[in-house]
Nucleic acid binder design. Sequence first.
DNA 1: TCTGAAATTGAGAAGCAATCGCAAAACAGG
DNA 2: CCTGTTTTGCGATTGCTTCTCAATTTCAGA
Lengths: 153, 153
Amino acid sequence: MKNERQTEESQVEKFARYLQTNGMKFTKERRIILESAFATHRHFEVDDLLFQLRSNNKRVSKATIYRTLPLLVRSGLLREVHDDDKHTHYEHIYGHEHHDHLICLNCGKIIEFGNPIIESLQDEVCKQHEFTPVKHRYEILGYCRECVGKGHP
Amino acid sequence: MKNERQTEESQVEKFARYLQTNGMKFTKERRIILESAFATHRHFEVDDLLFQLRSNNKRVSKATIYRTLPLLVRSGLLREVHDDDKHTHYEHIYGHEHHDHLICLNCGKIIEFGNPIIESLQDEVCKQHEFTPVKHRYEILGYCRECVGKGHP
DNA sequence: TCTGAAATTGAGAAGCAATCGCAAAACAGG
DNA sequence: CCTGTTTTGCGATTGCTTCTCAATTTCAGA
């Protein structure tokens, strides 16, 4: 939670800069949410944050979390991840290399993968269609080795 | 709506086969929903279907639509598409080549693209991770030429 | 340090897509 | 025409997310 001091500092700075640029304030609630979001090194959803905050006796309302997470996304610190689940999940992107996901439909395990060739082909596709990409969503759903071993097709 | 008679017949057959295989009945409601889903050649959502049915004086309850669309997905006739919108969209896949989407964040336009090289690289990625793919979600979000021309970044 | 405009928060209400429960209806096979 | 099963429709319900608005906090300038 307190390791990687340098990058953690810059996360705070980056968020602060984003907020300031847009005439918003860096409140203590937003700081708490930022810290909590980066305390885990896994994907998380709103309820995970809420639970974690309650465990640490920090009180931030659900509404504020729902309001703050999109700010963290826009500031380039988080990214939305789409399970087949209903609700939105998030993961860190700041300080992490870009990657996409293999998601197991049985156990929910998430395997990260990155493929530069795919990325460059993607850029080419966009160029062909005169399309200016902003972000993408690339998830392969299926079954991991363990679950296939257990007979899940 | 009545063109492509051959493929339309096989859609019905394919759905009928799927239902029978799973001990389900091919009711007239399910047939109406199937026909309606394939009447459009665009992406659609539940409300689109409802509106269309009402316009044609066909009465199928919302619940039945919600129950039937997943069956059409499982039978291999439809595919879910994820806008950045909240609710689920669907598109035909039966009789169409596989493709993915470029989605304009401003006007919502959807451009289809298919890239065999990306597909094969994807298979390779799965092999490397001993992952058995079932389906994927690959959407590139950004701005189309027209919207960039109009100053949308 | 004090002041006031502007932004933010919290708590609950509201929205809304999707799901559920159950009685009535439709089916299929005998 | 019975009989057991599946399906439908309706309304109610769920569960995530957003909204409303009064109260609070923040920050720049006095």
